[in-house]
Design a binder for these strands. Structure first.
Lengths: 134, 134
DNA sequence: ATAGCTGCAAATGCTTTGCAAGGCC
DNA sequence: GGCCTTGCAAAGCATTTGCAGCTAT
């Protein structure tokens, strides 16, 4: 049995038990650079590696990872959620015909003069989605 | 029977038959300034006015109106679509705890230096959502 | 008359949940 | 051992669709 310290440590650090399922998912998510993935896609991938993980667990895990800041959820279409392994400030291209997301580096777009948040509220995030068509 | 010329004309102009249902929905949508509304909300409203319209028809009508440019669809949460009666360029505040959308006038926010669209694609729209929390 | 609409109910697609069984510490 | 996790299947939502009957022109 192989151990992948990075994934293991990542889980311990955020206080989630490094179970077989969470380790397999963490490796797929974080061991290959930035990814934009849906629960279904991740489920297919993990099954393809031979590790049995239920779709329900994939959903639960994605949300747990999001809660502890390992992932960021991106909403581009009603009825489907994407999860982004890059949690730093950046924005996205969304290719509507293909249903794929691509990063727009933070330095390639400028959002200026964001208006003051209304009384009693704070700005949680500013999400920019540039929708592309063919 | 009352006739509301504006709603009637709006439908004829875009080539949709001014049926009883579409007229009722168009009046609720367009006769009171900018609105951000979901299918469920609109369905409740129209039923409250005493006009029977099925939820399926509300969905169909919202999409037809969107296709002909009378509405703009805004996606802020997975699993729910909002429709905006203001189709001009502007962005939104989304109050997460209340689930409400508010306009940010185009002149109160600046999105600059949008990167070139990748080969073979066009920018369809640039959507900015400023998420607010309490 | 007829092409376009509508309503209903069933189907769909994604996501969440309840609960018993299993696994990490 | 005890508590956290997982898997399964069922339930939940928002939305879409098929089709028979209705309606605007």
């Amino acid at each position: 049995m192989r151990h992948h310290p990075a994934a293991m440590d990542r889980l311990r650090t955020v206080g989630l038990r490094p179970t077989r399922q969470r380790l397999a998912l963490a490796r797929l998510l974080f061991d290959q650079g930035d990814r934009h993935i849906t629960a279904e896609m991740l489920h297919s991938e993990v099954m393809a590696t031979g590790v049995r993980v239920s779709l329900a667990t994939v959903y639960n895990t994605l949300h747990q990872f999001t809660e502890v800041g390992l992932l960021r959820e991106i909403v581009v279409e009603a009825g489907r959620s994407y999860f982004d392994t890059n949690t730093s400030a950046h924005h996205h291209f969304f290719h509507e015909s293909k249903g794929t997301l691509t990063d727009i580096p933070a330095d390639q777009i400028t959002v200026a003069a964001v208006p003051q948040a209304p009384e009693g509220t704070r700005v949680k995030s500013v999400d920019v989605i540039v929708r592309l068509e063919d």
